[in-house]
Design a protein around this nucleic acid. Structure first.
Lengths: 193, 193
DNA sequence: AAAAAACATTAACCTATGGTAAGGGTAGGC
DNA sequence: GCCTACCCTTACCATAGGTTAATGTTTTTT
């Protein structure tokens, strides 16, 4: 049950058996069925979530009523709504399940006590966030510099294993274009090669 | 000299006098003249930098040779090249001074020893990164959802104090549009109001 | 102070992508 | 097993923003 999350943590910090027990004792598990919400924008959401199985999307609804996927979360990734978690204010984003999911969740108060008792977890999440920072900075500069087609090609190269688990609409939304545009890009690429 | 950085740190953690001394002992100061590089893409850069005075930009050169500003850094902000700092690989971005600057710099080895000696600094940078994460997530979704004009208006609302310190080209580059487009947007806004 | 370089503005034109609509395919609910 | 709803594709037109170029202005260099 906890294999994947413990391996994920062991990438950056080493826990003693006691610390491992302490950590797993605050984990709550939750399953989601496909399409089920984990977070709805506007609700307060006080958990950091580790995806043990399945896939989710983080998205918001823009002024034109379009769903815009800000990110995905697959097995081994962390998700939630950082803003709501940190501030206690209503969540900015929706998070829902693209497939049946199994989540490991840590409640805010429990995590804050964990930070106090085992400061190594401050370190773990610091390193996790540094990596997220690098990835997001690249997404920002790619979004400014690259054409829709180039962003699509980069997406395929970066996440070849996920393409088949996502629909065209989901990929288009993540890339910041319409499904029609992505369909056109695919056709043009077919005829080129 | 250290007032601003100590106040910045005191937002999230409390240091004892000894810890404060320990911290300030590893700070190196550096001044940059306007246009001077702090980091050049391709060089290894092993410092986290706090802007005590002045302003910088983080940018990269895209495939068309255009400078794309990924972010600014004003007094009280942290900057550097997170990728190079973490991995020891060549930096992905250029960072240079938009004004004469005074920087407080922490070398990687010193910071890593500081993390070990005073784990509160793990916590400090964790919280700093969480806030950066929220800001970057918003930039990604704004970049996908909003028109160039809306992004410009949001920029003015969010950073009214910085507009006058930046040129039109710099703001346009940050917004991901050409200077010509921003000039057109400004003119249209003038005639509307 | 002069020369050179970079910046801002405007205009005319171009292109990538969005909007809309329609047809056929596929999957999930009853 | 049918129906409904959603998904993908294609086509045609609309438009925001890019490109190029010309002009005047400001800043930097010498």
């Amino acid at each position: 049950m906890y294999d994947l999350i413990l391996k994920n943590i062991a990438r950056f910090i080493q826990l003693t058996p006691d610390e491992t027990d302490r950590f797993t004792s605050i984990i709550k598990t939750r399953t989601l069925r496909k399409r089920q919400y984990l977070v709805q924008a506007g609700d307060v959401f006080r958990y950091e979530c580790f995806v043990n199985k399945g896939a989710l999307r983080i998205y918001h609804i823009d002024n034109n009523g379009q769903e815009r996927i800000v990110n995905f979360a697959f097995e081994g990734w962390w998700t939630g709504d950082m803003y709501s978690f940190l501030s206690g204010q209503p969540a900015l984003y929706n998070v829902d399940a693209l497939e049946d999911c199994e989540l490991l969740m840590i409640e805010k108060n429990n995590l804050e006590q964990l930070y106090i008792d085992i400061p190594k977890f401050d370190r773990f999440f610091r390193i996790l966030l540094q990596n997220a920072y690098i990835a997001m900075q690249r997404r920002i500069s790619d979004g400014m510099s690259l054409s829709a087609e180039q962003r699509y090609i980069d997406f395929l190269n970066r996440y070849p294993q996920f393409e088949q688990r996502l629909t065209l609409r989901q990929i288009a939304s993540y890339l910041g274009i319409t499904p029609e545009s992505l369909s056109r890009i695919r056709r043009q690429r077919m005829s080129k090669n």
